[in-house]
Each structure stands twice: as structure tokens, then as C-alpha cells.
Design a protein around this nucleic acid. Structure first.
Length: 571
RNA sequence: CGGGCUGUGGCUCAGCUUGGCUAGAGCGCCUGGUUUGGGACCAGGAGGUCGUGAGUUCGAAUCUCACCAGCCCGACCA
């Protein structure tokens, strides 16, 4: 394509509101424009990248036997009611009503609809099935942010596997695991598979593919020694050995006027590790105590995953007072018999602890967890802390901020059961197939590459998804010989199947070089009188920045060679 | 939803505290000229409901109130 006739609105200044590097560069480079918060238009350059990402995903999905579908983006409420998610998705689902008054939803994911189609499966002989699509998802995110990284409307590759039994599901899951690694490799993304929480999807296991980046929203615990990696929402770590403090035969009350926090109590000689933190939550409408060590944060996600609770809401001060007789800051579980009590594993076997006395300005010391607290359930619900030991190998864990580039789930039979899906097995018995669900956000993948591939001049697209693979920069467009050579190279490269951009704009060279760097074209050939005189053209690789002179007759071969080896990298 | 901040040509911003001629600058854009290997220069020009509405006032970009939108932090979230 000829740059002079393309719409590539590059900007010298980044929009003030863009903070993430990918956001700034994608806007500055003329790839995307915002229509409203969380909704972006793909401009021609952006759409080319998007389509190349999608093509790689398609190739890999087809490679593991995936069959591409296209399902509606707008769904009747009924399918969501059948799975129970019409309620549970809450405000995150866009809902609307048609002229007949029927309730509709914009699809935020497609388990329900694919499961509906799977009702036409009749026999185990038809399994496994692996179905996918690249389709628009709509999620009413409370806070869209960072350009394409978190939006309300986006293209997602979502796939779904249907198997007769758990072994089959394991195979489908592993196929996806491998395909995802190939996809991210081809995108030149260093995506690490990590154990993850299944969240609202339900199911037995899930793995996220995480790319380290400060622009991310997830924290991952990583062990560099044995390779353990888990989202902080589910990561566990070993505790440092700890001596219990000596204590008497019974808890002892002592006055603590004005002490409301762990830190304040610590100043009175009760270190956080020797305190019991008492949280009061409303768990599915039941007032519940949750106990942790004083220095440990509570992770609601871990609690939800462990208990299956639908609603985990901090209790209000007045209901706490009514139930326990004290305000937050003086709460404890000693002697509490009428409320369910959950305790974090880190409190097991602890004695000589300090906790609130359920009387304002009073605390108890010498508390023994076994003797003095009626724990109903022991759970791991604490957030781990960087530097704690890996439970597998004992080495210290690192915490890394990451972008979630992909997520795969073993769903089980939740949706097939809800939709009444049955197939006959080899014995003629009706069985409910088990499902897996697997997702990659296309725009987010693109933004993640931008986030991890840029320098002070602009983007550095990998060849595999660059909007154009090579740009021919005509230094002086009114120099006839330059244009003639450029046109010839342009034709030859196009004939060879190279995505070539001819910068024939009547602009100063500096403008063209800067633009080419900003939009991140991997290769550049500069064609100008200076080089033509000596029969040489300048060949520049964007990522390395080095420029070499190449004889005119060898340029095409040189470009083709670089393009072909590079764009198939990772395949 | 809580906290912080911001809305003035396509982009970046000044002007607002202390209300007052026709609302400015840089970049970008158009025309002409001069230039031409790393974001040129000169001259002329187009382009703005100052987020929206109401109020105060002789007079509002500027003061008051309400609303809307956007960004960041948190909560939330495949």
C-alpha cells in the first residue's frame, strides 16, 4: 500500500489521558481511537494487527482439531437463566429489552449458547468435540482502563471442549495448554502458565497465561527454583517456624483503651504474628467470623473458591455490635458459639495469642486456638507475602505483576447439565458430557505485545503480527530515479507475498523515519539519491536499529529472507 | 461504588485565583514561496456550542449549583 493514500493518523503528542505505554503508542501510532470509556475503534493499522493475531490463533486452534463457529452476540435471557448466571453475573452483564418486552443480554462469554448447540450431540462416538469462535464479548466493567488492556467490548477467541469423561477433558485441556503456548510464542509473548482461581466460571481447575508487565492487574507468585507459579488469588506459601508465646490456663483480659488496630496492639507488646485478626463477613446472608494471623491479609477469592460462597460481603458495624457486643477493633472469637467460625491454616496449633475480647477497649491474651476457639472450618484464605518460602522446594517466592493473556478452565458438567445435554455411552447409558472452556482476548493480546515491545521511538512489532513487514522509505519523492527503484521493489516484494508499505509521502525524511519507527514496522529500506549513486540502499532492522548498505539487486532477496524466517518464528 | 484529578479547534496546553474589547499559543491541516537524508523556514489562511443545563451579574471560559463525560488509585471483575 502507498502511505500517501492511507489513513494513518499519527500524533506527535500522546493524548493526555493515556498512561499505559501500549495505550499511548497505539493511539499515537494511529492504530486505535477511543469512542467512549472501554470502547475503541480499530483503525486500519490496528485492524491489520488484530487480524494477524486472530489468524495465528485460528491456525493453532485448527491445528488441535478446533472447528470454527460464529454464535450470536445477543442472547435470550432464557439460556442464562438456565445456567443460573442471569442472576449471578449481576451488573457485569449488559441487558436490554426488545420491542416485545423480552429480556436479552449481550454475550459476555458463550458457555450457555455452545452448550445449547451441544444438545444435538447424541453419542459418545461423536466425542470429543472442540468448538471455537472469535466473537465480540460485552462486559460492563466497573472500571475500563489502559487502552485495549481492559475494555467493555472486545473480540475474544473462546473455545469449548466436550468430552465423555475426565480423562477426555484432561486431553482437551492439555491440547489447549500446548496450543496456547504456541500462540503466545508466535506473538513473541513470554507467557507463563500459572495456577489460577476459576472465579465465576466454576469448574475444577484453571490455568492462566501470564505476561510480566507493570501494566497488568494480577500478581503472580513465582518460584524461580522449582517453577511453581500461581496467581496470588490462590498461591500458597510455607510459614516461617514460630514459637508460641507462653500462656496460662485460660485467656486473660486486659484493658486496651483506644486500641483499634493490629499496629496499635503491636505497640503494646503483642506482635502481629501473635495476634488473631477477627473479620466479620456476611456469607450468603449468614454472619460469619473469619480468623487470620494478625499480619496476614484475607483473600476473599480464596475463601469463595474454598467454600463455594456466592456472596462474601463485609458486615456492617451495627450488625457486628448486635452479634458480638463490640465494635471492630475489639472483636474476637473466644466464647463465640452461635456464629460459624472459619480459621486460616496459619493459626493451627497456635497458643499465647492476643485477640479482641468482644468488649470495647478490652483484649484477651494467652488465647489457645484449640482450647479457646470453636473453629468450624480450617482453610487457607490468607494472601501470601513476597519472600515467603515455596511449599514445594523451600526457596523464596517472588511476586510478579502480570497481564492475563489467556485463561483455560476445566468446567465439568455445570453447563451441560443445566442445558440437559446427554449422550449415550458404549453401554447405552445416558451420560452428561464434561466441558472445558478456553479464552484469549485478541485486542488484549495485541496490547500486551505493544506493552512489551516498544522503545523510546515507538512500537516494535514482531514480524508475525506487524501491520506491514517492510516499509520502503522514499527519501525524495520528486527524485525520479528513487521513485522508479522504489516502485520496482514494491512490485517485486508484493509479488513475493510480503506486506510492504511504500512511503511515497511528500514529506521530509525525518518525518517519515520517525513515523515508520512509531508504528513499528520491523524492516525499513531507505531509497534516496545518496545511496543510488553508489548502487546501495539502506536496510534497517527496527528492533536492533542497525543500518547496513545492501546492493540494490540484493535488497528484495534480503527482505524476503528476513521476513520469511522471522514471521514463522515460534511455529 | 469510595477517593483524587481533568473537560478550552484534530493533538498538547495557556487564560480561570482577582468576571470586562473580537478566546490565545505550539503542533497538525490548507495556499504560495523557499528548502530537502532524522519531526525545516517565511508569509497568508481555515478551524472553537470554552463538556451540558440552570443561576448570579450590566457583562461569565472565569463565580455558584446540578448534571454528564474522561483519566488515575481502591473496591469489583473470565
Amino acid at each position: 500500500m502507498r502511505w500517501s493514500s492511507l489513513f494513518i493518523p499519527t500524533l506527535r503528542d500522546a493524548p493526555a489521558e493515556a498512561e499505559a505505554a501500549s495505550h499511548r503508542l497505539l493511539v499515537r501510532g494511529g492504530f486505535i481511537r477511543q469512542l467512549q470509556s472501554g470502547h475503541y475503534s480499530m483503525l486500519p493499522l490496528g485492524w491489520r494487527v488484530h487480524q494477524k493475531v486472530a489468524r495465528i490463533i485460528r491456525q493453532e486452534m485448527d491445528g488441535i482439531g478446533g472447528q470454527e463457529f460464529l454464535l450470536p452476540a445477543m442472547h435470550p435471557a432464557s439460556v442464562w437463566q438456565a445456567s443460573g448466571r442471569w442472576e449471578s453475573m449481576g451488573d457485569e452483564m449488559f441487558r436490554l429489552t426488545d420491542r416485545k418486552g423480552a429480556d436479552l443480554a449481550l454475550g459476555m462469554t458463550h458457555e450457555e449458547v455452545f452448550a445449547t448447540i451441544s444438545q444435538e450431540l447424541n453419542s459418545y462416538r461423536e466425542l470429543p468435540q472442540l468448538w471455537y469462535q472469535i466473537q465480540w464479548k460485552f462486559r460492563d466493567e466497573p472500571r475500563p482502563k489502559s487502552g485495549l488492556l481492559r475494555v467493555r467490548e472486545f473480540a475474544m477467541k473462546d473455545s469449548y471442549s466436550f468430552d465423555l469423561d475426565d480423562e477426555g477433558l484432561d486431553r482437551s485441556f492439555d491440547l489447549h495448554h500446548d496450543a496456547y503456548q504456541r500462540i503466545f510464542q508466535r506473538l513473541d509473548l513470554d507467557a507463563r502458565p500459572v495456577e489460577a482461581s476459576s472465579g465465576a466460571m466454576g469448574g475444577s481447575a484453571s490455568i492462566e497465561f501470564m505476561v510480566a508487565s507493570d501494566a497488568g492487574e494480577d500478581d503472580v507468585a513465582v518460584c524461580d527454583s522449582c517453577g511453581y507459579a500461581a496467581n496470588l488469588e490462590r498461591a500458597s506459601a510455607a510459614l516461617d517456624p514460630l514459637e508460641n508465646r507462653p500462656a496460662g490456663d485460660a485467656p486473660e483480659s486486659f484493658p486496651t483503651p483506644g486500641v483499634r488496630t493490629i499496629a496499635a496492639l503491636a505497640e503494646l507488646g503483642h506482635p502481629p504474628v501473635h495476634q488473631i485478626k477477627t473479620l466479620v463477613y456476611r456469607i450468603d446472608d449468614v454472619l460469619t467470623l473469619i480468623l487470620l494471623r494478625g499480619d496476614h491479609p484475607f483473600l476473599e477469592q480464596k475463601f469463595t473458591d474454598a467454600t463455594g460462597a456466592a456472596e462474601v460481603i463485609p458486615a456492617e458495624v451495627d450488625e457486628i455490635r448486635a452479634a458480638l457486643g463490640a465494635s471492630p477493633g475489639s472483636l474476637g472469637a473466644v466464647g463465640v458459639a452461635d456464629l460459624p467460625i472459619y480459621a486460616d491454616e496459619a493459626l493451627r496449633g497456635r497458643s499465647g495469642m492476643t485477640t479482641g475480647a468482644n468488649e470495647d477497649d478490652q483484649h484477651l491474651k494467652g488465647v489457645d486456638m484449640e482450647r479457646d476457639v470453636t473453629v468450624d472450618h480450617w482453610l487457607d484464605v490468607r494472601g501470601i507475602i513476597e519472600g515467603e518460602a515455596c511449599t514445594t522446594c523451600g526457596e523464596p517466592l517472588r511476586v510478579v505483576r502480570c497481564i492475563e493473556a489467556g485463561h483455560i478452565f476445566k468446567l465439568g458438567r455445570k453447563y451441560t447439565e443445566a442445558m440437559g445435554v446427554m449422550v449415550l455411552d458404549g453401554e447405552g447409558v445416558n451420560r452428561v458430557p464434561t466441558m472445558g472452556s478456553y479464552g484469549i482476548g485478541v485486542g488484549r493480546a495485541m496490547a500486551t505485545v505493544a506493552e512489551t515491545h516498544h522503545d523510546e521511538h515507538g512500537l516494535l512489532w514482531p514480524m508475525s503480527i506487524a501491520p506491514y513487514e517492510v516499509v520502503l522509505t522514499v527519501v525524495k519523492v520528486d527524485h525520479d530515479e528513487s521513485m522508479a527503484v522504489a516502485e520496482r521493489l514494491y512490485d517485486e516484494l508484493r509479488a513475493a507475498g510480503v506486506d510492504v508499505l511504500l512511503d511515497d509521502r511528500d514529506d521530509r525524511p525525518g518525518v517519515k523515519f520517525a513515523d515508520a519507527e512509531l508504528i513499528g514496522i520491523p524492516l525499513r529500506v531507505a531509497i534516496g539519491p545518496r545511496g543510488l549513486d553508489s548502487g546501495q540502499l539502506e536496510f534497517t532492522v527496527r528492533s536492533g536499529g542497525e543500518t547496513v548498505d545492501v546492493p540494490i539487486d540484493e535488497v528484495v532477496a534480503r527482505v524476503i529472507d528476513a521476513v520469511v524466517t522471522d514471521r514463522t518464528a515460534g511455529q
